[in-house]
Write a protein that binds this DNA or RNA. Sequence first.
RNA 1: GCCGUUGUAGCUCAGUGGUAGAGCACUUCCUUGGUAAGGAAGAGGUCGACAGUUCAAUUCUGUUCAACGGCUCCA
Length: 647
Amino acid sequence: MHIHIYLPDGSVREMPHGSTALEVAKSISEGLARVVLAAEVNGEVWDLSRPLPDKASLKLLKWEDDAGKNTFWHSSAHLLAEALEALYPGVKFGIGPPVENGFYYDIDFGDYAFSSLDFEKVENKMLELAQQAYAYERSEVSKADAIAYFEQKGDPYKIELLQDLEDGKITFYRQGNFTDLCRGPHIPDTGRIKAVKLLNTAGAYWRGNEKNKQLTRIYGITFPNSKELKEYLFMLEEAKKRDHRKLGKELELFTFSEKVGMGLPLWLPKGALLREKLENFMRKAQIKAGYQQVVTPHIGSKDLYVTSGHWEKYGKDSFKPILTPHEGEEYLLKPMNCPHHCEIYKSKPRSYRDLPVRLAEFGTVYRYEMSGELHGLTRVRGFTQDDAHLFCRHDQVKEEFKKVIDLVLYTFNALGFTDYTAQISLRDPENREKYIGTDEAWEKAESAIIEAAAEKGLKTVTELGEAAFYGPKLDFMVRDALGRKWQLGTIQVDYNLPERFELEYTGSDNQKYRPVMIHRAPFGSMERFIAVLLEHCGGNFPLWLAPEQVAVLPISEKFKDYTQKVSENLINYDIRSFIDDRDEKIGRKIRDAEVKKVPYMLIIGEKEQENGQVAVRKHGQGDLGVMSIDAFVALINEESNKEINKN
RNA sequence: GCCGUUGUAGCUCAGUGGUAGAGCACUUCCUUGGUAAGGAAGAGGUCGACAGUUCAAUUCUGUUCAACGGCUCCA
């Protein structure tokens, strides 16, 4: 009796009945058998030790495959649990899944405060257990037996998990002395794990619910060899160097002050200049796209937000209302610009001929974020949105949506973002009562977004249940230096606010109609965008954005007058520069300008003065030779123009 | 908000139950130097804040504030 196994290259292998994926690997080569971690059997990931069915399509998963890594890390989580059980008898186990970079296990340590000081001990224990090369053994158990096992062991979390599982589909995995409830699959044995590093600990609520007990989550990562671990740790160090909080301080872009308040960034001169450049870029693009700028106050009457529905839904996330001293009127620090813009729309009667009306504002908003949530510039309590609201007719929605996608892509392109994902967020079909608005309106909005994204050729992922309460949306997400995902640009359809504010326009038939509203912000917030941009370019801004474009470096004070002349020339051409006239050697001035990541340096000495030239040095590249001032100005202008207009 | 870690000079960080340290930055002086750190001197700290223990606390204990790593949330 033989079975037939189909391999990814199209070949078919004949194996004895009952053969496992590991045996298939061995039949190909011993080397392969040593590195294979798991098997994908008919699209499902399996242990290597399970007998294969006839006519199975088989893919052998190695470290290089994401599913292989996941299996490896999942097995590592079990190894961590085994080590913990050995070192801290009586600990209770939550869940221990693989994550993007490694794995974690949620542990109830009882009264013991587990901390990073314990890491080394646990790492050593893990390595010791790994060396025993215990096999991961799969067994099927009945629900009653499974519950009995954990009752006897005293693991209440596992019992809670078991309650939700269907009898007959429950499996245990055992390696060494440790048995865990687990769907699997796992790598063949612990011996594959050669390098172990625990990364950090964190509190995590059982099942992610704030009302439940908080467990200690231990994050770790493992590798099949120590070289890869070293490389990973090196990469982590490099990423830390790009952290926007570090670069923001070093490059003097922004700061925080306890006195001003947490989550409230202070923009230093260079950071403010950078923001201004980005705002001007967006303003110009928006004018081309037919937007009009408006300005609205930082506070608005509470009534405004009661009308918009935000008070009811997000009142707890706003700063508490401010009262006027005598009348006791209630005002909110504005958490949103849209209600204000609705009132601007209403300030005069609108005709169908006027639509779409596109109102834009760099609007600063204030939202209460929980203290533990604040994070550099990416999560703050006061921030400026590059906000705009488009009021249009139903038949214009899709077209407007597409134009906004164009604007977002133009922006990302100009700033060098190529690694982003577009997420379409739709309503949760199970929970329709969570949302404001009619089914009909929602269906129209959702199909408009899906069609617009498809026609623009966006690569998208669709998430059910991620929509805002008032409408579906399209978000653009990018990753920061440490791999964390951040939402930047957003486009949202809103059929709700026009209703609540009773917005109208007069149609060609002289009847009144409701416009549709589109909220959109290509940057999202200036703060978050700059944070991500800073990490993206590692502080080496494109020339057109660099707060300081040119450092003018005289070799000695003898060339003071000529240096001054060069500087005036640059100012005349709107090139941002500064003179370093300290009593230092030229090598020192160059070093300091390089560290500050100034794109260009001009070295001014006797030769340059005599010939009316400048010696040009480019950041990160070195000496470009001498040229006339005019030639340098042309070089700068050409480079900036090329950067902005690369679309 | 919750759990854990951290808090010493402008920055990066040593250190101690008995009057506080380094490097860089800063100030002054010397140096006038050609493509990534010239030399010397000086100034700078209520050791996050508030209590407690102690003859004595920056050090030990408690509380609090903030930052960091997560959880939860994100119009």
